[in-house]
Write a protein that binds this DNA or RNA. Structure first.
Length: 428
RNA sequence: GGCCCCAUCGUCUAGCCUGGUCCAGGACGAUUGGUUCUCAGCCAAUAGACACCGGUUCAAAUCCGGUUGGGGCUACCA
């Protein structure tokens, strides 16, 4: 049975590169109706932490990547010792203090990589390899080989940064009498300025992207497009569809640069299609934190706000930033908005508008628009000459959703209060 | 330094394996225009790439070699 694994080390949060490796393994396993195993490589006792493990598992679940089995290397030390002893007995390894070292003999190792094709190494450039460290824990390359063999991996799909580990592992498979799996090395994901993705160059962990307001399906979609293409110029794809279409043959070998603008676009595509109820649920914690709402919020009212911004936001955080005027009495006026309001005295126009609005029976978008247009016609001005200052006064911003829709949600009272602040004020 | 990987628009990519259908297609971004109200929304248009040199061939983005550039590894980290 096709069996693959994702083998994170709980020494940090699940980052973009790791989740891409997990994702490709997952879609490959599901494509072949095989097994996807999670193996926690917690042999670095100093740097491994429980909080990282929890975080990794949570992030994987959030992305929709479920696993069939999970193993912890820290619980398998006896197994590694046993095989190290076997190599010792066979004179293929030697002791150095309490550490067990593998003797590397010169040979030419050929890897038939599923993505790169044939790669050749001369092991005479490789030093003898530590198998078991002085503290009794196994090294990465050793534990990895033992586990991949024992757990019956058919394919090892991992990052390009492991290419140079591969010959070291292959000679271990040979020495132990294990059959090598098929290797497939995925290109690395580079940061925007070039080089590795690091905290200095922006968000790196899945958790951060979640907090920034990205949807898991958008992250998954974007990551799928980094190093793989479903073909036919398709840009939007779900996890399920990718599992159907994924093949290693179509995986790329070129390193890809992470482009947050395209991620934003993809997130926007999913946000647009998302159920407003779901988005509201995702938004509530941030809105509570900002004290924009309290526990007894009006769900229907908030849904109308979500719908108002849904098409234009790139992240959920955009909603929080853009909708502030619906929650604050004391608006944050942008420089450009103040400029519009100071350019002219709108006392007359605003007063007339308040009157017009207050006599409306139906305070819906269409009625407001009708009344508004009648007013500007009477004043013999263009609609936009009043739309802009009104938007500025009501929202503190110069850009935003359609004014009439915004007004219908804001309601008569708030419109009157906000406009009145600019009545009687001297224009510039 | 040594070893290894990679090389198509600014970015992600299609095409490359099985040379001609490619004066290289799509998407993001950019620019311009339109959008009974703004744009960070929507619509449309435009610009924009086969890294370089050589070879093979009637023919090369596609095959081969070299150069240059980028990346990785070179731990008793994983």
């Amino acid at each position: 049975m096709t069996t693959v694994r994702f083998a994170p080390s709980p020494t940090g949060y699940l980052h973009i590169g790791g989740s891409r490796t997990a994702l490709f393994n997952w879609v490959f396993a599901r494509h072949h109706k095989g097994k996807f195993i999670l193996r926690i490589e917690d042999t670095d006792t100093l740097r491994s932490e429980k909080k990282y493990l929890d975080e990794i598992l949570e992030s994987l679940k959030w992305l929709g990547l479920d696993w069939d089995e999970i193993f912890f290397q820290s619980k398998r030390y006896d197994i590694y010792k046993k095989y190290a002893q076997q190599l010792l007995d066979g004179k293929k390894a030697y002791l150095e203090g309490t550490a067990i070292i593998f003797k590397v003999n010169p040979e030419i190792v050929k890897i038939d990589d599923a993505i790169h094709g044939e790669i050749t190494f001369d092991t005479s450039t490789i030093k003898d390899q530590v198998l078991i460290k002085s503290d009794g824990t196994p090294t990465y390359n050793f534990a990895c080989v033992i586990d991949d063999a024992l757990m019956k991996m058919t394919h090892i799909i991992r990052g390009d940064d492991h290419i140079s580990n591969t010959p070291k592992q292959i000679i271990l498979y040979e020495a132990l009498g294990f059959k090598s799996p098929i290797f497939a090395h995925l290109p690395l994901i580079l940061a925007a300025g070039g080089g590795r993705m690091s905290k200095r160059k922006g968000a790196t962990s899945i958790r951060e992207y979640k907090e920034l307001g990205y949807l898991p399906e958008a992250i998954v979609n974007y990551l799928l497009l980094l190093g793989w293409s479903p073909g036919e110029n398709q840009e939007l794809i779900t996890l399920e569809e990718a599992a159907k279409k994924f093949t290693l043959e179509k995986a790329n070998k070129t390193a890809a640069t992470f482009d947050s603008e395209k991620l934003d676009w993809i997130n926007n595509q999913y946000l647009k299609k998302a159920d407003p109820q779901r988005l509201l649920d995702l938004l509530v914690p941030s809105l509570l934190e900002k004290k924009y709402i309290n526990e007894n919020f009006d769900r229907n009212y908030l849904i109308s706000l979500v719908k108002l911004f849904q098409g234009r936001m790139n992240t959920l955080n955009d909603f929080v930033a853009w909708s502030d005027f619906f929650f604050l009495d004391d608006l944050n006026f942008e420089e450009s908005a103040l400029k519009i309001l100071e350019a002219k005295n709108y006392s007359c126009e605003f007063s007339l508008l308040i009157e017009k609005m207050n006599i409306l029976d139906n305070f819906d978008h269409a009625s407001i628009e009708q009344a508004f247009r009648a007013l500007v016609e009477g004043l013999k001005i263009k609609a936009k000459d009043l739309v802009h200052p009104v938007r500025a006064a009501l929202t503190g911003k110069t850009i935003g959703p359609g004014l009439f829709e915004t007004m219908s949600i804001l309601g008569k009272d708030r419109i009157e209060t906000r406009l009145k602040k600019f009545i009687g004020k001297e224009g510039a």
